[in-house]
Design a protein around this nucleic acid. Sequence first.
DNA 1: ACCTGAACACCGTTCAAGT
DNA 2: ACCTGAACACCGTTCAAGT
Lengths: 231, 231
Amino acid sequence: LELNSIYVKMSSVTTGRQRGERRTDALSKDRIVEAAIDILDVEGERAQLFRALTTRLSTGVGAIYHHVANKSELLAAAADVIISRVSDELVDSHPRDAIRSLSLGIFDAIDAHAWVGAQLTRDPSQPGVLRIWSAVGVQLDALGVPESARSDAGSALVNYILGAAAQYAAGPGRQLDPAERAAILEQIADRWQQADSAASAESVTSLREHDDRQQFLAGVDIFLAGIASLR
Amino acid sequence: LELNSIYVKMSSVTTGRQRGERRTDALSKDRIVEAAIDILDVEGERAQLFRALTTRLSTGVGAIYHHVANKSELLAAAADVIISRVSDELVDSHPRDAIRSLSLGIFDAIDAHAWVGAQLTRDPSQPGVLRIWSAVGVQLDALGVPESARSDAGSALVNYILGAAAQYAAGPGRQLDPAERAAILEQIADRWQQADSAASAESVTSLREHDDRQQFLAGVDIFLAGIASLR
DNA sequence: ACCTGAACACCGTTCAAGT
DNA sequence: ACCTGAACACCGTTCAAGT
């Protein structure tokens, strides 16, 4: 115990920490993941993640690699933490509402942590994606979707959620200023109008001024309606 | 004209081309994009794209940058070529069938060009994605989806297609050997079973042995059924 | 205007050497 | 067992110098 505290003091000198300011918690995968989340939230996905972690945790890169295999494992673990916060918060309610809450929870989480959208899209077998499958599966079961249709319904919903997540996360609203965003939406609207000679001004306008979150939820409801027809 | 052919000869010596083997076509964005598609198809997304292009087209990197702004523009242009081949081939048919064909066409294109899945997911305002929006818009209009619901329906379908595309493209079937794939599907199945005490062996089995393409189409049909309920 | 290719920049990853 | 940090590797991008 005394030897240990001497080691701590020596180590704090080495790392430039003040005497007595000893680290309360040792380096661990959890601490690294938490730090990574903070860094990604603030600096975005193109942060120099490992260099930033090194500074933030005042260690060398090697120490991080001692707890984490590589960047992609770290990102996957970080995304899973974000998703688990959503799925753990689900309260009991009608399965239709639970699916809406889950979907909106994921949407909002990605809104708050933009990097999660791209991350979930990168690898279908990462823990965060499995967690979504799992949560969706529970609710579809509770909804009484027949066995035979369960996996079709599940994959439809999960793919929609992930697709929307990725699109909105990287979306124009995020990386472009309002003027550019408007121009792009107009471009899309123009194509629709061009393709659809009967398109009224209202449709174009609604496309231009659509509310991402509400539109996302409308998509969930379309899938729920489609799933209901499977019964 | 003679000066020109002398220049060609000199240049072919410089680039190591055989005498008389003069390039039939000059370097252009189109040629670069075509070459990029071939390289990405064969070597995958982690190909050393610019170095490979340099060899393939026997030029320097700078020449490529003279026609293309950067890698992401090049990837976006390449993905758009793939998507345009699909959307241009659509034959007139009932809008429901046209939506199925379009969706399957995109699915198959991504199956043949795996890198397209990830690419379409990266930026919602890239040309290939706009092209999908446009094609979907035409069909939803033909389907008689009311104005007010058009953009909700469109974004639901586009997001589903892109989400599924990305998942299947990067999917376990592609990057893992069959044994690992089976293990992962089993893991998902276990979670479903764990969550669903009533889950029968059949449901788990169908999840394990599901056919990606068929499941993708089932999702499109769920969406179509949901859309029908909007009327 | 179009092309050449060496040099640079950026960042994740390794590794020999510590405590 | 855990940590340190300089060196390396990888690849997109720039740029001064050509034709």
